[in-house]
């Protein structure tokens, strides 16, 4: 079942296009990672999804239905910036949740506060950025939601607490919850998420399962005997996204069919190998296709 279906979402602020015809399907019970450079439109996408901003075009469906206020009983959102009330204590924030959400679990809230070493009596004003993030996460997870939308849920946290947040996400996922989260820390997305979307300038660049992307996206490196080799046969090849030749070396960026390409190039007389790409490589390659080949030169 599709938990969240984003269809051709577009959001303009004046002449600025924050989100540009973005579509994604998020299956129930999966963890979905939203990646993109700063200003790519991740937060705006979340806001439009949750009805906090009105989309210029497109639609978002939750379990096949348009967003209704009642859905927030089962949906929790943790924004990137702190939206807590400075003048209230952490305990008052939890009390606010208890009164508003029928599924709020006070015992769970206490466990979560202990996990992040937060005291109920503390005023939000006195909290660091990371502690505010942690408080917002405690509030969200204590509601026992089915769908969690987390915008940069580890920002401002130290590595220990970042790991704790990842484990919270994994624990929730193991319970069948649907989780959408964005992070600048690609390694975290690589661990916790199954599916990702990479955004840039409001547009969807790449989407799919991390495993499929890793299986498909390769750099094929071929070393020929002479620098006079011909690449005519590859010119119109749909598998090749980018080609770069330096002397006897040919580097091809491919999104699928790397093994077959290696075989073909080997038959052409090249010493050929396919280099695996991790998610960061894939991200950088998607956002700026020139990056990966440069990186590989440095690695070599």
């Amino acid at each position: 079942m599709t938990a969240i279906s984003i269809r051709n979402l577009t959001k303009n602020y004046g002449s600025f296009v924050a989100v540009n015809d973005f579509s994604a399907d998020i299956e129930a019970g999966t963890v979905f990672g939203l990646l993109g450079p700063n200003g790519a439109g991740k937060t705006t996408t979340f806001k439009c999804m949750l009805g906090l901003a009105a989309p210029t075009a497109g639609s978002v469906l939750f379990e096949g239905q348009p967003l209704q206020p009642a859905l927030f009983e089962r949906l929790a959102y943790v924004p990137e910036k702190s939206v807590l009330y400075d003048w209230m204590t952490i305990g008052e924030h939890l009390e606010m949740q208890r009164r508003a959400f029928s599924r709020f679990d006070a015992g769970r809230a206490k466990e979560l506060l202990a996990l992040f070493d937060l005291g109920e009596k503390k005023k939000v004003r006195s909290l660091s950025k990371g502690m505010r993030t942690a408080t917002a996460l405690c509030m969200a997870f204590a509601n026992n939601p089915d769908i969690l939308v987390l915008d940069e849920p580890t920002s401002g946290l130290d590595p220990v607490n970042q790991r704790a947040v990842l484990k919270l996400i994994i624990d929730a996922s193991a319970q069948g919850k649907t989780i959408v989260f964005s992070s600048h820390q690609i390694g975290q997305v690589e661990r916790a998420a199954e599916n990702i979307a990479i955004m840039q300038k409001g547009k969807l660049l790449v989407g799919g399962s991390i495993d499929d992307l890793k299986a498909g996206w390769k750099i094929v490196e071929a070393i020929f005997d002479t620098d006079q080799f011909s690449t005519n046969g590859l010119a119109g090849d749909s598998r090749v996204h980018r080609m770069e030749r330096t002397g006897r070396i040919l580097r091809l960026s491919v999104h699928t069919g790397a093994d077959a390409l290696v075989d073909e190039l080997t038959k052409m007389g090249a010493n050929c190998r396919a280099v695996d790409l991790n998610l960061e490589d894939i991200f950088l390659n998607a956002v700026d296709p020139a990056t990966v080949t440069t990186d590989l030169v440095e690695k070599a």
């Binding site: 949750l50 906090l52 009642a70 927030f72 807590l84 009330y85 508003a100």
Partner: peptide, 8 residues
């Protein structure tokens, strides 16, 4: 607003 509007 993110807190106010994500209540049921």
């Amino acid at each position: 607003l993110e807190l106010a509007w994500t209540k049921p």
